[in-house]
């Protein structure tokens, strides 16, 4: 009996954890976000970011973009679990469908005088951030970019007087001519 070979690999092997961006198309009915957020917390999955707004007003359909991390089997479970929720129309793993376009928007408030203020302006211009508000001692910048760009921008601004950050989380879409709806 012990000489028989199992065809399964070592069960103890560590699977790599990857970051996936999921587009979830749902009926915009009361409680739908709680259902999805509750599924993640109840089953112990991660949410790195979550973006949601109604995208088709007549049909009351919302698109939820979730950035999550997990092993391949966890990601597959997340997708299956999402798909079995009654108000969920579709779940598309944008990470699997190829390089999706991912953007997030951040608002950054910087307060400072003298060199710090000048440096903040230089950095904002280097990143292509828009100035939304200015006083003699402060700026509010808007930057749209990938999560990495936004992270870098915020990190640099921290050194020159960053006092407040507001971020939207990721909005994403697959490249190419095909739509997911």
């Amino acid at each position: 009996m012990l000489q028989m070979k199992t065809h399964y690999p070592d069960a103890h092997r560590v699977e790599p954890v990857n970051r996936h961006t999921l587009a979830v198309v749902v009926d915009n009915e009361p409680g739908v976000l709680a259902r999805i957020a509750g599924l993640f917390s109840g089953r112990g999955y991660n949410i790195e970011s979550l973006t949601v707004t109604e995208t088709e007003h007549e049909a009351h359909i919302s698109r939820i973009t979730i950035v999550t991390t997990g092993t391949d089997s966890i990601i597959q479970q997340i997708k299956s679990q999402l798909e079995r929720l009654v108000p969920v129309h579709r779940v598309v793993d944008l990470t699997m469908t190829g390089e999706a376009v991912e953007r997030e928007l951040c608002l950054v408030k910087v307060v400072g005088k003298g060199d710090h203020r000048v440096e903040a302006m230089r950095l904002a211009s280097a990143f292509g951030a828009r100035t939304l508000d200015a006083t003699l001692t402060s700026f509010v910048y808007e930057l749209t970019g990938t999560t990495d760009e936004v992270e870098r921008f915020i990190k640099l601004m921290t050194a020159v007087g960053l006092v407040e950050v507001s971020r939207t989380g990721v909005a994403a879409m697959a490249r190419g001519a095909e739509g997911i709806l």
Partner: peptide
Amino acid sequence: DPSSINKTVK
């Protein structure tokens, strides 16, 4: 239920 498949056992 597709979520039962590969949930704990491959």
